[in-house]
Amino acid sequence: MDIYEIIAWCKEKKVVLENAFVLSNVPLDITDTVIYRVLDTVKGTGKTKVHGRCSDKTGREQFVLVETSKRVSEISFPVFIGIPDEIGSWSTQVLSATSPSSGSSKGEEFNTKLMSFLKQEGTSLADIQNVASLTLTLNTELVSAINSLVQKCQTASPVEAQNYRKLSTFSGLTTPNGEEDYEVWAERTTHILEERQCSDNVTKQRLVECLRGPEADIVRFVKVENPSATCCDYLKALDTAFGPTENASDLMVKFRNTFQEKGEKLSVYNQAR
């Protein structure tokens, strides 16, 4: 664990940096009681307290953050601690007097955070300098690309965002309130949509905006069943559900004027009727 990770850890756990140190290579199943037994073997540490644990990259061992009642600069820490032939050994990591402290200036604090971030991202200050040398060129190319894109959008936008007549609302209810009959609404709507020179997605959006109640539900079902359905598919589904149907008189006239063709089998004739 590097110095910047230790600083961040101490800040998170609200541990005084000058009184903190880290134990490494500690097995995952070690209890705090065993850790305190090992810490008691180090002379002059005063009272100690375990503040946190963190697994290392292997996931088989862990780091342990410990705070002492004395400044670590006043304690002579061995490189490794443990109980011979029983526990350990664990390596100790103590911040030196020249390490960045929690009371550092804003510039030093920023530098600490920056170095920690760069380490996590697997990069360095040299990489940033290389990127910075290309900033002017990249900015020029970026501005040029954005300008070109804006011009294209401005050219295409009048077609998509042209003024249009708002479609009449239709709900498909039996007794619509101030709504047109389906045949009148469908004829008017189809005519308006055909006049528009815009994409099918925009056309579908305009159609959906004017639907209410059962009609809106039908279009929603079509969309769920077929996400790539076109505006024509929506209109066909609406026509199937709300389009005109033949009444009893029309069907009787059609029945009485249906005759068996010469040579036509009776089974075929019956099926046609």
Rank of each mutant, 00 (worst) to 15 (best):
K11M: 07
L17K: 04
L23V: 12
I30E: 13
T31S: 10
V34I: 13
I35S: 00
R53E: 04
C54N: 14
E61P: 05
L65W: 10
E67N: 07
E67H: 03
R71I: 07
P78M: 03
V79T: 11
V79S: 15
I83S: 01
D85P: 08
E86W: 12
S89K: 09
S91W: 03
P100I: 06
S104K: 00
K113G: 03
Q120V: 11
E121F: 01
D127E: 14
D127H: 12
N139H: 13
E141F: 10
L142W: 13
I146G: 13
T155C: 01
A156V: 10
V159M: 12
A161F: 15
N163F: 13
R165A: 08
K166P: 11
S171K: 02
E179Y: 01
E183Y: 03
A186S: 12
R188T: 05
I192R: 04
I192H: 06
L193P: 01
L193E: 00
E195A: 12
R196T: 05
R196A: 01
S199M: 05
N201G: 08
V202Q: 14
V208T: 14
V208Q: 09
E209Q: 14
R220I: 07
T230D: 04
K236Y: 12
T240A: 15
F242N: 08
G243I: 02
A248T: 11
S249D: 10
M252G: 02
M252V: 14
F259Y: 07
F259D: 14
Q260R: 09
E261P: 02
E264N: 01
L266T: 04
S267W: 04
S267G: 02
N270L: 15
A272L: 11
